[in-house]
């Protein structure tokens, strides 16, 4: 594959991909999507949140889970960083702490795909931040 160096190259890749995949409509109705928010404040970044976010983007895409991965701020659980907040459609947000790749895999396999809760949940007092 030729090296990608220009915006035109990006567009070419996009057109190739577009012709291959069926267009997803999910971006218009986020309430049907799994939402994963990675804590990306100083505490999160210093604990490796960037790698965790990248891992979630890659894995969810690879496993064809309809999900959107975004960033959020500090939820006040700096001791448990990296943290992620997962919102399954029609469910309350659940926060998970001390995420590494293994834990992330478990969240995808067990919570996101099967809806079963796993260890590492941040307390009941957890509230999504809305800044």
């Amino acid at each position: 594959m030729p090296k990608i160096t220009s915006l035109a190259d990006l567009k070419r890749i996009k057109e190739e991909v577009q012709s291959k995949i069926k267009l997803r409509e999910n971006s218009d109705n986020p309430e049907h999507l799994v939402q994963v928010k990675v804590g990306m404040a100083t505490c999160g970044i210093a604990s490796g949140a960037k790698e965790i976010m990248k891992y979630f983007v890659e894995e969810l895409e690879q496993q064809a889970v309809d999900a959107v991965v975004t960033q959020t701020g500090c939820m006040g659980y700096c001791y448990a960083e990296p943290t992620v907040e997962v919102i399954l459609p029609n469910n309350d947000p659940v926060g998970f702490g001390r995420i590494n790749k293994r834990k992330a895999e478990e969240i995808i396999d067990t919570y996101i795909k099967k809806g079963k809760l796993i260890d590492g949940i941040i307390p009941i007092t957890f509230k999504t931040i809305d800044e």
Binding site: I4, K11, K14, E16, V17, E61, V69
Partner: peptide, 25 residues
């Protein structure tokens, strides 16, 4: 970037790789 990949999710593997490569290269 967005206008050139419009219609496909930025999370999509090929698009993600292409954007990262574009910047990196």
């Amino acid at each position: 970037i967005k206008s050139n990949v419009e219609g496909v999710s930025m999370q999509q593997t090929e698009i993600r790789t292409a954007i990262i490569d574009f910047i990196k290269n």
